[in-house]
Amino acid sequence: MILHLDELGFQSAQRDKEANLSLANPTIAVIIPTYREAANLPVLVPRIDTALRGSDLRGEIIVVDDNSPDDTERVCGELAKTVPLRLAIRRNERGLSSAVIHGMRMTDADVLLVMDADLSHPPEKIPELIETLCRPGVDFVIGSRYVAGGSTDVGWGLFRWLNSKAATLLARPLTNARDPMAGFFAIRRSTFRSAENLSPIGYKIGLELIVKCRCQQVREVGISFANRLHGDSKLTMKEQLNYVRHLMRLYGHAARRAFRRR
């Protein structure tokens, strides 16, 4: 099923019904933001479907694409013949974070799980993230590179590792999570709906949700983070500057919230 959101608007994407999370058998939506990732989807989507079916998890895959000039629409049409997949094509809006929010608003699933399309996040870890989120009191779960069982690809290099660590340290006043920069995470839909004025810049939507949804109990599941399979990285100097701007906004939001509590 293909939705052109800029043509149809958000009426069918935003649901008023509040889903109650069943700890025993939640429904899952796997949300994948894409831009020029057509070569990776035929590998990624079947692995996600296998991981869900293998754990008796009920769910769907939602691809939110920023009008890629490649075969994304055709590839998703073929995959949707055998896998519960929906594609939303955004004609007039761009950005990973806003694409994730679009996908989250398209579904009534109990659990919203986000991952990249480039095969850096292992779909086989999805059941463990879901199981962890369904424990009492847990607000947010991260597929983490920096906890026990986590690792990065040997091809990362010192500069990339230091860049990631520096970004994580800058976020430390906002959360104690070891890997808050991760793009592989799960959150309850009811928690997402409690968000305060989402206004993300750049790629770090997970950190935005931790702060704006007031996630107190954040858990991390170790994953092996791989280099992308096909295509080029979207991380540029512009995105690094966007991250600093994003942090300033989140610091300001946290400060205003603390002031209101006085």
Rank of each mutant, 00 (worst) to 15 (best):
E37K: 15
R262N: 11
K17N: 09
V154G: 12
M1Q: 10
A148M: 04
E220T: 05
A254P: 00
A13L: 14
L3K: 08
T27Y: 08
A19T: 15
G77C: 08
E196L: 06
L113Y: 03
F140T: 15
A177K: 02
F185H: 03
M248N: 09
D179F: 01
T132M: 12
V211N: 02
G155R: 15
D139P: 07
T191I: 09
R245D: 13
K125M: 14
F259R: 15
A24K: 10
N176K: 13
D71E: 14
M106F: 14
H121E: 14
S97R: 09
F159R: 14
A29L: 08
E18N: 12
R260G: 11
H253R: 09
R160S: 11
S144R: 06
M104P: 00
V221L: 03
K212R: 15
L87E: 00
R86M: 06
T168L: 03
L3I: 11
R172Q: 12
D116H: 10
A99M: 13
T175R: 00
L235G: 03
R178E: 01
R228N: 10
A171W: 04
A254L: 06
L3F: 09
A182V: 05
R74D: 04
I48N: 07
M181P: 01
V75T: 15
L8M: 03
P33W: 07
N25G: 01
S144I: 00
I187A: 05
Y203S: 08
E239T: 12
S98H: 03
G157R: 12
V154M: 06
K17F: 09
G9W: 02
S151A: 15
L113F: 01
T27M: 02
R257W: 00
V147H: 08
D56T: 03
A38S: 15
E196Y: 10
D65T: 05
F259G: 00
R74H: 08
G155S: 11
G202Y: 05
L112F: 02
L52G: 09
R160I: 00
S55M: 00
M248K: 11
P46Y: 04
N25M: 06
M1V: 13
V111H: 07
A171Q: 12
G150H: 06
S55D: 14
Y251F: 14
K125L: 10
C215F: 06
L133M: 07
E93L: 10
E73L: 13
T107Q: 11
R228I: 09
V100Y: 07
R214I: 05
R47A: 13
P200H: 04
I89P: 01
Y251Q: 01
E78G: 00
M248P: 01
L133R: 07
S55Y: 01
M115A: 06
R228C: 01
V211G: 02
V111W: 08
F259H: 12
L21H: 03
Q240H: 11
I201K: 14
E239R: 13
S224C: 09
Q240K: 11
E37H: 15
R36C: 14
D232T: 10
G252K: 05
L162I: 08
I142Y: 06
G206L: 09
Y146W: 14
A226M: 07
N242R: 10
Q11C: 02
D65P: 07
V83R: 09
K165H: 05
G149F: 11
N20D: 13
F192W: 02
G59E: 01
